[in-house]
């Protein structure tokens, strides 16, 4: 199956064939499984997948089995982007010296978790973006180091319980807000940056398609609920994802050559309480703490609206 060329506007534009096999070890209701499925549908068979360790890797490649129909390379935690850069450079050299793949576009797709991207792999990602490698980088963000047992990462949101940000007398979950990975990518002036969310699959797949078609580095930051880590019901994966957008906790962005745009507008926002209340990791929050998060989101939304030059995300309207 070739990489998708036509824009994805409706469900009918989504290709039926799959490049990612079911029956892997990802948990019931894991959003990362859905994200990988959609990603591979878009990029097709000519992508070389380069993967940093984390849940997706460990659950889909128990040697000698695999769920990946594509060429697939395992990398350590800190060097996903470095490995991806190397594969891309090697492809170019092979093309130049021996003329292989002359009429085929082979592209490197790097995939890593938030821990492997926001924290440990940040330097290699920075190098990849700075040098301008032709790599599409996808970070699936489940907001903690899930594979090793729910330790906090730079992507863990304010107030969230994890095993290393416990809830007790001294600590009330994660003390700091999430790191701004989009801002970091922007500072490298790469041609394509986007945020995506599995509750909006056509939007997500269109962003994957554009990121794949970009010549040069592209980054797609994908929101990815984790059922055991977030203490949510298995069937609530999509429900929680949608609430993240409807409350302004997550904004659907696309930045093409530095020009930002909100792809999913939210005229009336829901209060963040609705998002926090259905997740066990936020169960300890008091009304005061919820209000603090609400104010933080209000400020973030204002900042985004100013940046994109329109009121893409509206005010909170209590129902």
């Amino acid at each position: 199956m070739e990489a998708l060329k036509k824009p994805v506007r409706t469900i009918w534009d989504i290709p039926r064939p799959e490049q990612f096999a079911p029956g892997h070890n990802m948990c019931q209701g894991c959003a990362a499984a859905l994200i990988m499925r959609m990603l591979m549908k878009v990029v097709g068979k000519d992508a070389i997948v380069v993967m940093g360790t984390g849940c997706v890797e460990v659950t889909t490649t128990p040697f000698p089995y695999t769920s990946w129909k594509n060429p697939w390379l395992h990398l350590a935690f800190e060097n996903t982007a470095a490995g991806a850069s190397g594969v891309e450079a090697a492809l170019k050299a092979l093309q130049r010296k021996y003329g292989v793949f002359k009429d085929r576009y082979i592209k490197v797709v790097a995939i890593a978790g938030d821990g492997g991207t926001f924290d440990i792999g940040l330097q290699s990602l920075s190098g990849m973006m700075e040098r301008g490698h032709d790599v599409m980088y996808v970070v699936y963000d489940n907001e903690a180091y899930m594979n090793t047992g729910i330790q906090r990462s730079g992507a863990t949101p304010l107030g969230a319980w994890t095993t290393t940000t416990p809830v007790g007398k001294r600590m009330r979950g994660e003390p700091r807000p999430k790191k701004d990975i989009i801002g970091i990518a922007l500072a490298h002036r790469i041609p394509y940056i986007a945020t995506a969310n599995p509750a909006y699959p056509t939007d997500m797949m269109e962003k994957f398609r554009k990121a794949y078609e970009t010549r040069g580095p592209s980054l797609v930051h994908v929101y990815s609920p984790c059922t055991p880590g977030w203490r949510i019901r298995n069937e609530h994966t999509i429900h929680v994802s949608r609430l993240a957008v409807q409350t302004g906790m997550w904004v659907q962005l696309e930045i093409e050559n530095g020009k930002p745009r909100v792809t999913v507008k939210v005229p009336k926002r829901k209060p963040v309480r609705e998002y926090l209340r259905i997740q066990g990791r936020f169960r300890h929050l008091t009304e005061e703490e919820i209000q603090k998060i609400q104010r933080m989101v209000d400020e973030y939304v204002e900042e985004i609206n100013r940046w994109v030059g329109e009121q893409a995300i509206g005010p909170v309207v209590e129902e």
């Binding site: 096999a21 889909t60 490649t61 128990p62 089995y65 990946w68």
Partner: peptide, 17 residues
């Protein structure tokens, strides 16, 4: 050459879950 080829059920019959 021991090569892996993708197929359903890399983790077995997950319907048992």
């Amino acid at each position: 050459l021991p090569l892996s080829e993708a197929a359903p059920g890399s983790a077995g019959r997950t319907g048992f879950w």
